[in-house]
């Protein structure tokens, strides 16, 4: 019973945050449509046959280029390995930058404490 209550609480916070985000994005969209001199088509959608130079993967019909997001468009074998390595690399870098100085500091503090105890003895 307690666990169900906790799950409901987590889901409730999740729902409230989701609602706020949807409202914020919709309000932002309404605002940008109202403020732009709208002449029939949003500027980010290109006409049929245009290239996808900036890699957004958006097509005029509102659809997306599958390959851009889902990898069905024949992404090279090395590309996904690069993506995976990049993600692991970013995390490893962040962990090293934060955890290493903390670990060294801890070791130093322990060493100082050991030395002070030895000095007292």
């Amino acid at each position: 019973m307690k666990t169900i209550g906790r799950i409901l609480l987590i889901l409730a916070i999740f729902s409230v945050l989701s609602g706020l985000m949807v409202a914020a994005v919709n309000a932002n969209g309404q605002q940008s449509i109202a403020s732009s001199d709208f002449d029939g088509a949003p500027s980010q959608f290109r006409t049929e046959g245009d290239g996808d130079e900036d890699g957004d993967g958006i097509r005029p019909g509102g659809g997306e280029v599958r390959g851009e997001r889902g990898g069905r468009g024949g992404a090279g074998g090395s590309r996904w390995i690069f993506g995976l390595l990049k993600n692991v690399g970013v995390m490893a870098l962040v962990v090293t930058v934060i955890a290493l100085p903390r670990s060294l500091g801890k070791k130093k503090r322990i060493q100082v404490a050991v030395n002070s105890v030895k000095g007292e003895v």
Partner: peptide, 13 residues
């Protein structure tokens, strides 16, 4: 998380 972060490798489904 690593798999979902890279939809190129896993596919969209």
């Amino acid at each position: 998380f690593l798999v979902t972060m890279d939809p190129h490798s896993s596919g969209i489904a």
